[in-house]
Design a protein around this nucleic acid. Structure first.
Lengths: 172, 172
DNA sequence: TCCATACGCCGAATTTTATCCGACAATATT
DNA sequence: AATATTGTCGGATAAAATTCGGCGTATGGA
């Protein structure tokens, strides 16, 4: 079960509305999609059970939480074999600074999105948690000036006319 | 108003619970934080008004939505001056394939996280929407094998003992 | 074509929750 | 000490979630 799911315009309305505000009440959602609340409940259940909806996440201001410095770390691991990769991933994912981790093709094996308390904390993180490790061959650190993330993900338009939901507003 | 906000353990409980499931009912949230529902409502309002909570987002399965190929595009723009950067950002953010955009320090100016229908659609995106543009000097494309994102963001521990919430589970 | 089945949708009834508000206690202020 | 101020609570009321039986349409088979 990993294929594309057939979604009708009502599903897309629901998804679009929830991507904008995942805490919308079922009633509001139903209104947005033009269906009865009970129907909306059905749709939601189906979307969750079919795996289209994988969760509802809080979006917070990192700076307000005391982590105003965000950076991307490009990591090259030494042998890049499974027995090394798995513990590396495990460890990175469980660090409180880690916001996201990507396993990539290309010269760098991993990309880590981190949020640190300040430049010094970032330096400590890079030195102690990455370059100090044997399996880490190379780390490149780039600061994030600004970001735009969390915008709605739309399915590719199968036919000719896409549904317009206005300008996207990746908050930034 | 962009400073750190003072958060007590109750706030952290609320944030942790919401980061795990942003659609928790107020009652469940109150139970998780060990306070009365009415109090929880107050806390939520304060967290929103103080800017700690910036939104609630739906997490979807890109593949289920017909975009199984994810990639990171590293972009170098030509003069990298404001009059060029702003329209570039505007354009990128409004593309349906775009999941996130980062303005970075380092040799590459931007990083774009995209989700495409297939390899061909990705190729088309890169060629038509990036390399074809005058302001784009260079594009590097890396596929994403796997990702772990959306894990809880914790504030740095001020004192000695951090609050344990068990192992983090950046879904992947 | 006609019938049978299935599926999705609805709306009313019931249970559960959100939200408002006044009161109380603890803390800070003058 | 007297007075604000702030945060909490619990009950009352309004609103929403959820359940469920039935209806209509679409689908497939005879």
């Amino acid at each position: 079960m990993d294929q594309t799911v057939q979604l009708d315009p009502v599903d897309l309305d629901i998804l679009a509305a929830l991507q904008n505000d995942a805490r919308l009440s079922n009633k509001e959602l139903a209104a947005a999609a033009g269906i009865a609340p009970s129907t909306c409940l059905d749709r939601m259940n189906r979307l969750r059970e079919s795996g289209v909806i994988t969760g509802y996440r809080l979006q917070v201001d990192s700076a307000k939480l005391g982590r105003p410095i965000e950076a991307l770390l490009f990591i090259r691991v030494q042998p890049h074999k499974r027995p090394l990769v798995q513990p590396f991933v495990e460890r990175v994912v469980n660090q409180p600074e880690t916001r996201a981790l990507y396993h990539l093709t290309g010269p760098d094996d991993f990309l880590v999105h981190v949020a640190a308390e300040d430049a010094q904390a970032l330096q400590r993180l890079v030195l102690d948690e990455y370059t100090a490790r044997d399996e880490v061959a190379l780390v490149h650190t780039n600061l994030i000036f600004q970001k735009w993330e969390g915008g709605p993900l739309l399915p590719p338009r199968d036919d000719g006319h896409a549904r317009s939901h206005g300008k996207r507003d990746l908050n930034g």
